[in-house]
Design a binder for these strands. Structure first.
Lengths: 242, 242
DNA sequence: AGTTGTCTACTTGTCCGACAATATTGCCAC
DNA sequence: GTGGCAATATTGTCGGACAAGTAGACAACT
């Protein structure tokens, strides 16, 4: 039995830390990251800082063009649509296969219970278990590349959430019900039904997110509490066309 | 009308050149690439060579572990299965959508004609137009991320082909017929039929490839020329769990 | 024999300092 | 203000340096 240990290099550590800072909002979308700044912040050589930036750029956590300083990626309405559509494409067919086998992954079932429990507890921090519901479905077909692709999309969803700073109106009640219905349809072997339900489920989430980001579909997007304090909301639209 | 120009950096150029060498077989799977060697070959600083290697590693063209020299990736039977299954997952749902719209992308139709023509001309170099048939379908749904995911898979298929050095028994005749049938089913709006046809089509290709690589289905794997010299074939499975 | 220790050669990981090319900014003249 | 220019900031690349890790060979030990 082979056992694995991890030995993290300097670049690894910086990369992880920066990625973490991006997803939890400490580094808001659009913030610039210069090589010098990072190298001094972490007390490492500029080359190491540079390597970390390049990695995050290849992961699309940061964006950079020639001779310009890297910035935290900003995801607009078009990106959200694209992300969710790709999720739908990937997950639909996986669902059909699972329905064909009438196989319901336990991890998805437990994840959905978790959401229900959080909701009963009054919490709305359901992004994580919600994602686990979906990745549970995907991972159950046991394809490393399929999982990798989906997890990459899931990560981008997380970035969107970080961009929204918590405000987000997905009702846990509806989510739990739809998840449960999907699992039920899988158990019944109803591939078309499961796929249709998923489409509806993710499409709704997509439109909600697009709306929150100020997308076109619902032209009067309501800004519930406060326009993000200190965050230039609109300027990122320009970056959409690079 | 915006026009784009590309200004390639040293690292860009090296990365591209190396990637090209890998796909056309000049750098066979498993060959080691040390930073020093590359830096002297291209007459650049080691840091630049290193950056190129890191990029290709993140693209999975090369593989590397801590303190060990990078090698050209070797794709085994398990990888091929995984690649093709992921292709099937992605492409099936796209096909269903196209069937729903009864929309047949022209690029796919012309690509299939190209294969037919090459075949009539006695050529068996059909990998490229074959891929264009499929990417034509994918790209027509106009999702950048879906396309990116599929193109990444297509690239891995190319790597497999490079590994096989040309020998490959896919009959163009059957391919053309199946492609045509798929387009026909899309036109008829038969989503299930199109998806099923695609599954059959890609599954056959998958098994053929797996067989050529010495997969388990035909347990007696023949290593025509030489067994991969000094290359532990299985070890990459470990990297799945990082 | 088989295990363990040591040596050497090679390679990677990280640092430093340097400089040209390019981008950004601020200022000045108009 | 607007255009243009100079000063500044930042990236892209270089070369050299050294510690740390890997691999193979060979000797020593049990």
């Amino acid at each position: 039995m082979v056992r694995h240990i991890v030995v993290t290099s300097v670049v690894d550590a910086i990369t992880e830390d920066l990625r973490e800072q991006v997803v939890n909002g400490e580094l808001p979308p659009g913030s610039p990251l210069t090589e010098l700044e990072i190298s001094t912040r972490y007390e490492v050589a500029r080359s190491s800082a540079r390597a970390a930036i390049e990695r995050l750029t290849s992961e699309k956590v940061l964006v950079r063009r020639n001779h310009k300083t890297a910035r935290v990626v900003e995801l607009g309405p078009d990106d959200v649509r694209d992300i969710y559509n790709t999720r739908i494409y990937l997950e639909s067919e996986v669902l059909r296969r699972l329905a064909g086998l009438r196989r319901v992954p336990v991890s998805s079932r437990t994840a959905n219970s978790e959401i229900a429990e959080l909701w009963r507890g009054g919490s709305y921090q359901i992004v994580d278990p919600d994602m686990r519901f979906h990745t549970g479905l995907i991972d159950s077909v046991d394809s490393a590349r399929t999982s990798a692709a989906y997890h990459s999309l899931a990560f981008e969803v997380k970035l969107c959430m970080a961009q929204l700073q918590g405000r987000q109106a997905l009702s846990p009640q509806i989510i739990v019900a739809e998840h449960a219905r999907i699992l039920e349809l899988i158990e019944l072997g109803d591939a078309d039904g499961a796929a249709a339900m998923l489409d509806e489920h993710l499409s709704r989430a997509r439109e909600l997110l697009v709306g929150s980001l100020g997308g076109t579909p619902g032209p009067e997007a309501e800004w519930p509490s406060s326009a993000a304090p200190g965050a230039p909301i609109r300027e990122d639209a320009a970056t959409a066309l690079r």
